[in-house]
Nucleic acid binder design. Structure first.
Lengths: 338, 338
DNA sequence: CGCTGGCACTCGGACGGACAGAGTGCCAGG
DNA sequence: CCTGGCACTCTGTCCGTCCGAGTGCCAGCG
């Protein structure tokens, strides 16, 4: 097991490296942190840390930089979450309070996160899985064409066109609308299939085909739209990545464009609490030199979606985690209010 | 006036520079294009072109590169639009035909454009300005809370919550819904304010407040949502920009994040036909080293929105213009069909 | 008059050696 | 177990040299 001082040395290395972006040597360490020992001693500690795989030197006779494993230890044991200051918290709340609708909430959240962390922000739209149905509306656009509108308790609205197998009268439409709502309004998405199963039976034979079509469209919407959307922002911050530019940044930009990749990334993160994935811990290769800090957010106790940031492994973890947590908390509040 | 050959020299310079990304000298020019004259002659021509401001040398004794003015001349007089090949056109059509809804059309268009041009693609959502109202729906969420849903002929759906000043009965709701639709369905957005002006008069006194609120929300939606949204893609292609990386790419990324900037950019472009804005012709400073090729697209004869690409001034203009034009055309078709 | 070949000139990029600085590992002594 | 000292190694930088590409200009040719 590593001695207390060695852990301190590791912590100091991470902090300095994050700050300066340059390999840090033993002398500089003793100068900037009062460890109470000489550079030589620190060197011994560093050698030990290197043996254990927590730090590495880019080349002989350069300082050390933390490895992914080193960051992992740092995050797990050595660093807390740096809470936001009161003014910061107030600013967050004010900014988010100005939002007019769900899209706006998400858009503002992305901006905010990107600004606070100076990194790339990713915010998932509230998922439908755990949502409940607020209302289902049916509109007749043409004799055999309906529009199905689904409104969720998170304020999301989804619409679908439905081509009916047969003309569908206004009376039937009103009937279906009423029955459908009485069954599913306020219910969870997951329960809807069961609840509407026998609905066609109450209708005239000639209308059953249409009812069935509407229902299957509704179910499809519930499932399909679970492929959650997300919004990203702050890509300009990628330019602060490192010096060896195009090589590092390209795969990251590509990953960011592939929403599938990002969704998977967020999906893999733990459901509760904050998750930090460091470097190679990310399954997607293009993100091997980045870390992802993510957390779920939601209106009640349950998380309905996730948000987070993507940045270089060399990031300010305590600060980033603090910002991510704070933003998630306030977004949750906003959603609860609306 | 420039002689025919000098124009050819300019064309050759642009083509070579676009291909190689390196300043092009007189000798290389005569070798790769059979101009029928010697390097010395070309040098004279180049000196003349430089005097006129069409080309420049980064430093003494390097080759020449085109200036913005040079590209302008090239685009206006020397280069046509390179049409897509038949297989390419088929591929475009197939790809776009797979779209399931408006969002998907836009998303696919962005991907397609980015891929075809290997640049950053920008696609504006069909504007509401020239659209017509397909249907207005009102749903009662709570005794004094309505949801207003607006459906346009381009398949766009907008929704708004309305807090009523007084409870509003189901009967009144149905009445309002019917009257509203009979007046505005199929009409242009611009005409709506005039058409609903006197609507509250037909209602009971106690309902008029609510009706007025609904109407003003509707009008707000029409105006507000004219702040068009847009989608961008292919940002990874920015890495192919140049060698002097962070400096060039950063302002571009920033501009791309500011949708306002992009919308203004597209807005300034001519309404009909293809617009090419080269380097400093772009009002926004961050895009001074980029060119923007944009064109309107729409379902009928009229353009309902614009799309385009953003790339380095050193881009393949004929090819890019061909791709942009072709994509705009097919998107228009898709919209017309749906 | 326009094109051409020749020539001197300029400049940037590549190559290579010298050098300074930072950092290390190791060892002997406290 | 810590510390100071020492030799070593490597990188980054600076500088001088050289080469090649490209230019501008000029005299000559058709």
């Amino acid at each position: 097991m590593l001695s207390e001082r060695r852990l301190q040395v590791l912590r100091a290395i991470v902090q300095d490296y994050v700050g300066t972006e340059e390999p840090v040597g033993s002398k500089a360490l003793t100068e900037r942190h009062n460890l109470g020992v000489s550079p030589a001693t620190v060197r011994n500690d560093m050698a030990a840390l290197e043996d254990e795989g927590f730090i590495a030197q880019p080349h002989t006779s350069a300082g050390r930089i933390p490895t992914d494993k080193g960051y992992r230890l740092f995050v797990d044991k050595l660093a807390g979450v740096k809470p936001m200051t009161a003014p910061e918290r107030r600013a967050i709340q004010n900014f988010l309070d100005g939002a007019v609708d769900l899209d706006d909430v998400v858009a503002r959240t992305v901006r905010l996160l990107a600004q606070l962390t100076r990194q790339v922000a990713v915010v998932q739209y509230p998922s439908l899985t755990r949502s409940t149905v607020r209302h289902v509306e049916l509109l007749s656009l043409a004799p055999a064409r309906l529009m199905l509108v689904l409104i969720t308790d998170t304020g999301r609205v989804e619409q679908r066109l439905v081509d009916c197998p047969a003309p569908f009268g206004e009376a039937s439409l009103a009937d279906l609308r009423a029955r459908l709502n009485s069954r599913v309004a306020g219910r969870r998405f997951a329960d809807v299939p069961r609840l509407v199963e026998d609905l066609p039976e109450g209708f005239d034979v000639e209308d059953r085909g249409t009812v069935a079509t509407v229902l299957s469209t509704l179910l499809e919407t519930l499932v399909e739209e679970n492929e959650e959307r997300l919004m990203i922002g702050g890509t300009a911050n990628l330019t602060r990545f490192g010096h060896d530019f195009p090589l590092t940044i390209r795969p990251v930009l590509e990953a960011l464009e592939e929403q599938v990749v990002l969704l998977k990334l967020l999906g893999e993160a733990g459901d509760s609490g904050m998750t930090v994935r460091i470097g190679h811990e990310n399954a997607y290769e293009g993100l091997n030199s980045t870390s992802v800090v993510s957390v779920g957010y939601g209106s009640g106790g349950e998380a309905v979606a996730k948000l987070g940031v993507v940045g270089p492994t060399r990031m300010d973890y305590p600060g980033t985690m603090g910002a991510v947590r704070a933003v998630a908390r306030y977004v949750g509040q906003i959603l609860a209010e609306s």
